[in-house]
Design a protein around this nucleic acid. Structure first.
Length: 115
DNA sequence: TAGGTGACGGACC
DNA sequence: CGGTCCGCCACCT
């Protein structure tokens, strides 16, 4: 294989532009591991911090930061990093996912039509 | 070895 | 909205 699961996850996450968001499931899809969102979470958990990989741009499909005591504060750090990129996060970890959703680079060029 | 637990997601109620 | 269930699969008892 050309790299471990972890490395493939990180490679995808590394492509997420600043100010944009992706979901765990989305990352799994982009790396051809459909339905393995959970494993993507594990891979990010194994990411040594601090890291140049923009791990904070990955949130869950409910548009919230996955909070967990097991993260030992990295969840709150994620909150800070996102706000620093201009993405508002409320006290419950909710954020405007729809507006900041990263489209990957798979979106076919669309020809705009006249209204 | 079996069973419980998650940085998940989608269906249902 | 929120809560439960189930499928998913790597980790950890």
């Amino acid at each position: 294989m050309t790299g471990s699961f972890d490395q493939r996850v990180w490679a995808v996450v590394a492509r997420i532009p600043a100010g944009r968001l992706a979901t765990y499931g989305q990352v799994a899809e982009l790396m051809g591991a459909w339905g393995q969102a959970r494993q993507v979470g594990w891979a990010l958990r194994r990411l040594p911090l601090p890291s140049p990989i923009p791990w904070h741009r990955v949130v869950n499909a409910q548009g919230r930061i996955s909070m967990s005591q097991a993260r030992e504060g990295s969840d709150w750090m994620q909150c800070e990093l996102l706000r620093a990129e201009g993405i508002p996060v409320d006290g419950e970890g909710r954020l405007p996912l729809a507006r900041h959703r990263w489209q990957g680079e798979a979106s076919a060029p669309v020809h705009l039509e006249q209204p």
